[in-house]
């Protein structure tokens, strides 16, 4: 028996009137992969995800989850997928543990799993706190736990880190990594490019209903052939001196710093080290934001 990919999406389209929300999207996700769908608001990420989850019917195209079609509502498939929705969907006035038990009961899961999930998302000490008294990050983690409570093979997360403070985001990353370590396939949307770069095995960059690029983040960035920016504290070197260094393409000065762009950072950095001019050194390589800029010609705005 050959193993089907976890997710297979082939030329899916969905229009709302004139608006082509999803305009010919194709991708596959292997089992155990951490797959990110990136893009600004309105790029079609959520619609794509909802079609894949079987919540919406595509106008055309094909979707297979573990070899099965999710549309129309496929009861055989449902226990194998876990979905966290964009809003925090909870039952009224139940504690964290009761929420997990209630959602678990929809799948016939035993009560013990609730405690295990609370442990996994770091909410064990909040088990008896009502959902509306949790912080934003805690609610987000609880909703992920609710998506996992029936031990699904594929987990869909829609912007789990949106509207979280940096610390809460980082806590959540640990949770997401722990989920992947359990062998789950994760498909998630985000508009934080830096986050996707850290977490995802592969990313699909979407804009205006289309997939513009699909590769591991490092490959996308490397393929961009974008220069590396080396920044120093102002006053160590002049712009003219900087441009004379072998490998520096261009140097610019502003009130506080000197920035050089280079495609060969190694010789530039050793030249700087020789001169002892390393104060305030920052090296910024290209990021997915640069990839987005290169693909669309637009600055990335989440």
């Amino acid at each position: 028996m050959t193993e089907e990919p976890a997710v297979l999406v082939r030329d899916v389209r969905k229009s709302y009137g004139e608006l082509k929300a999803v305009d010919g999207v194709s991708f596959t996700v292997a089992r155990g992969e951490f797959f990110g769908i990136l893009g600004p608001n309105g790029a079609g990420k959520t619609t794509t995800l909802e079609i894949v989850e079987g919540l919406r019917e595509p106008d055309s195209g094909e979707v297979r989850l573990l070899g099965e079609s999710p549309w129309p509502r496929n009861v055989k498939l449902l226990p194998r997928i876990g979905v966290q929705l964009q809003a925090s969907s909870f039952f009224e006035r139940l504690t964290a543990k009761e929420q997990l038990r209630a959602f678990g009961s929809l799948y016939g899961v035993s009560h013990g799993t609730a405690e295990e999930m609370l442990e996994l998302v770091g909410l064990a000490d909040k088990a008896d706190v009502q959902e509306n008294k949790l912080s934003g990050g805690q609610r987000q983690r609880l909703s992920i736990a609710c998506a996992l409570v029936h031990d699904p093979d594929i987990v869909f997360l829609d912007e789990p880190t949106a509207a979280l403070d940096p610390q809460a985001r980082r806590n959540l990353w640990d949770v997401l990594r722990a989920i992947q370590e359990r062998g789950k396939t994760i498909v998630y949307t985000t508009h934080y490019l830096d986050e996707a770069e850290i977490l995802c095995d592969r990313v699909a960059i979407m804009d205006r209903g289309r997939v513009l690029a699909l590769d591991p983040p490092a490959v996308l960035v490397r393929g961009l052939d974008a220069p590396t920016h080396v920044t120093l504290q102002k006053g160590l070197l002049s712009a003219v001196e900087a441009e004379a260094i072998d490998g520096v393409d261009e140097a610019r000065e502003d009130e506080v710093s000197l920035t050089m762009s280079t495609r060969r950072p190694a010789p530039v950095l050793s030249a700087l080290a020789e001169r002892g001019a390393l104060d305030g050194l920052q090296v910024r390589t290209a990021t997915l934001e640069d990839v987005f800029l290169g693909l669309t010609g637009r600055e990335y705005r989440a």
Partner: peptide, 9 residues
């Protein structure tokens, strides 16, 4: 929550 229920068997 309705959506979530719809996604459960």
């Amino acid at each position: 929550v309705l959506r979530r229920i719809r996604l459960a068997p």
